[in-house]
Structures are given as structure tokens and as C-alpha cells.
């Protein structure tokens, strides 16, 4: 028996060690960026445009650009994603076609981001003649975000007790009335959480915006949806790889701002989830 116990102890130590090897770098990475980036963060940094070939000044246009792209992505992906999920959960019958739809959702989620970039370029920028623009970039990011929103909405809808629907139908409500009054209102928390999460991922993506919207240096803010725009992830990429003699503190600060934005959105999503869990009445 003692050898079995001994083996168990050894095994658990190895597992713990593996976990440590995973967890330590995560913490160190975050600390590393915060430590080195925090010093360069200032009000000017966040509110001014870059100067001196990106080596000085601030990253304001990139921050604005990312926020614009987030909003644009939400505008396109949210309605389409929610409606698709409603179809899958409330209307679709259990047949091959439905299975095809579900398979397509899975596939969309596995397509590499650069392939989305290619697709966005050829469809939105060229074919639909939108040019490299906020519109093209947002549309590309939206298609990329669809699977996450669809999945989150689907789970939220399925979590609503079936009895609500049964009650509604038995009183003579139509399917849409049932969804609108007895299902959707209770799925909104889950949908919201999933949406914020999906948008936080879109905010950090570089590949899809490389050819569809990202501008290298655009100190003025965009005037229409057909304009290009700077974006935080692209900016970080450019200053890390293509600007010689780049002061490291600015690069770290840019990475810091990007991470802070993404983490803030994640935090909002987590807080939303906790808040609605408390308010649940069933």
C-alpha cells in the first residue's frame, strides 16, 4: 500500500509542477508588461497622436480606432448572431440541415484569422468596393465573431426552463410571442456576457485587419466609415517589427494599454455574469 501511496504522491507532485510551469509564465508575463509599460503611461500618452515616426507622442488614434472597430463589429455580429442562435434553438428541427448549420458554426470558429483577413480583403475591400475601410474591417471581424456570439446565445436560450415556453404555447401564444416574452428576456444576461467576451477578442485581433482597415500612420481621426483607421494591435505589431530605434517603454506601454482594454472588457463580462446570477428568479 505504501508504494501505491508513494506513487500517488510523486504523480501529484509532477502534475503540480506542470501546473506551475503553466501558471508562472502567465503571472510573469502580465507583471512584466505592467512593470515596464506603466512608467510610460500618462494622460498625454492616451490622448495624443504619435510623433517622430511613432517614437514619441501618444497612441490616441489607435485607441479610438480600436473602439470604433469594436462598435462596428458589434453592430453587425450581434443581430445576426442572436437571430441565428434563436433559429437553432427555437425553430430548427432535428435534421441533417440543422446539423449542417451547427457544423458550419464549428468550422467558422476554427478558420485561421489570416484566412478571414484574405476573405475580408477579397470580398469587402475588392468585390464590394468598400476599399480599406472601417466598414470592411468591421464586417470581417463580425464574421469572425459570429461563432462565439452564436454559441453564447444558444447556451443562454437553452438555459431558460422549457416550462416557460410550454406555458406560453398552452395559452395560445405564437412562437415569436413566446420567444419575445418568455425566453429572450431571461437569456439576455448570457447573451450580453457572450457578446462582451467576443468583442474583447475582436479588439485584440491583428490579422483580419491587416489588409482590410489598418493604417500605419493616420494622425487625424476618421471622418466616415469608408476611412481607414489605426488600431492598437496593428500599432503594436508595427512598432515592434518595423520601426528602428523604437523606445522600449512606448512599446511596453502600447502593449499595456491593449491588454488593459481587453482585460477590462473581460472583467465587465465576468461582473455581468455574477450580477445576473444573483438576480435570477428561477
Amino acid at each position: 500500500m505504501s508504494t501505491a501511496r508513494g506513487r500517488e504522491k510523486a504523480a501529484f507532485i509532477i502534475l503540480g509542477f506542470a501546473t506551475l510551469l503553466v501558471v508562472l509564465p502567465i503571472i510573469l508575463t502580465i507583471v512584466y508588461i505592467i512593470k515596464n509599460g506603466f512608467s510610460a503611461i500618462s494622460w498625454e500618452f492616451i490622448t495624443q497622436s504619435p510623433r517622430n515616426g511613432m517614437r514619441g507622442g501618444g497612441i490616441f488614434p489607435a485607441i479610438v480606432g480600436t473602439i470604433i472597430l469594436i462598435i462596428g463589429t458589434m453592430v453587425f455580429s450581434l443581430p445576426l448572431g442572436i437571430l441565428s442562435a434563436i433559429y437553432l434553438v427555437e425553430y430548427a428541427r432535428d435534421n441533417t440541415f440543422t446539423r449542417l448549420i451547427k457544423l458550419s458554426v464549428v468550422n467558422l470558429s476554427g478558420i485561421p484569422s489570416i484566412v478571414y483577413g484574405l476573405f475580408g480583403f477579397t470580398l469587402f475591400v475588392l468585390f464590394l468596393r468598400l476599399g480599406t475601410s472601417i466598414l470592411a474591417g468591421a464586417l470581417t471581424l463580425s464574421i469572425m465573431s459570429l461563432p462565439v456570439i452564436i454559441t453564447a446565445t444558444k447556451e443562454a436560450l437553452e438555459a431558460v426552463p422549457y416550462s416557460f415556453r410550454e406555458i406560453s404555447f398552452s395559452l395560445g401564444a405564437t412562437r415569436w410571442q413566446t420567444i419575445r416574452y418568455c425566453v429572450l428576456p431571461y437569456a439576455i444576461p448570457g447573451i450580453l456576457t457572450g457578446t462582451v467576451l467576443s468583442l474583447s477578442r475582436a479588439a485584440g485581433e491583428t490579422a483580419p485587419i491587416l489588409f482590410t482597415v489598418a493604417a500605419f500612420y493616420l494622425p487625424r481621426l476618421p471622418r466616415s466609415v469608408f476611412d481607414q483607421v489605426m488600431a492598437l494591435p496593428y500599432h503594436l505589431y508595427v512598432i515592434s517589427t518595423q520601426v528602428p530605434n523604437m523606445p522600449a517603454s512606448i512599446s511596453f506601454a502600447t502593449a499595456f494599454v491593449l491588454i488593459a482594454l481587453v482585460f477590462l472588457m473581460n472583467l465587465v463580462s465576468i461582473l455581468l455574469r455574477a450580477h445576473y446570477r444573483k438576480k435570477k428568479q428561477w
Binding site: 502567465i26 508575463t29 502580465i30 512584466y32 508588461i33 474583447s200 477578442r201 479588439a203 485584440g204 485581433e205 491583428t206 494591435p233 496593428y234 503594436l236 505589431y237 515592434s240 517589427t241 522600449a248 512599446s251 511596453f252 502593449a255 491593449l258 491588454i259 481587453v262 482585460f263 473581460n266
Partner: peptide, 17 residues
């Protein structure tokens, strides 16, 4: 989950620097 949230460009940056 925090690791999952880190954008890939930031990891690339860490790789370079």
C-alpha cells in the same frame, strides 16, 4: 482564462523583446 485573453500580438511582442 486570463491567458486565453492575451492577444497574440502581445505574445509576439514578448517574443521579440
Amino acid at each position: 482564462e486570463i491567458l486565453a485573453a492575451i492577444p497574440s500580438v502581445v505574445l509576439g511582442f514578448i517574443g521579440i523583446i
